[in-house]
Amino acid sequence: MKWLNLFIFLMFFLNGCSSNENDCNDCGGGLIDGYLYKEITIDDVSDLAEMNISSEIGNCIRFKMVESQFSDVEVVDDCCCIQFN
């Protein structure tokens, strides 16, 4: 019985950890890989259109910046859990 309780406790603990990880860390590379993230605003649309990237305001992109220009842009599902106010 003691082992069963320990097993249930560990499962609960491990599940709790993994769901936390999944919530916020699935968005890909970070600053170490040279990537930034942002929500697309009206100011970004023309720059992205020039790069033939179809995008909607409010979507999120992962990108690099080269001399104030977007580079390596990819539309991603979320912006690493950032809540935009």
């Binding site: 930034l36 942002k38 950032i82």
Partner: peptide, 15 residues
Amino acid sequence: KPLKDKSTIKIGNLH
């Protein structure tokens, strides 16, 4: 690395 408004910088688990 230049920043645009509302860019997110991901460093480890920090955003």
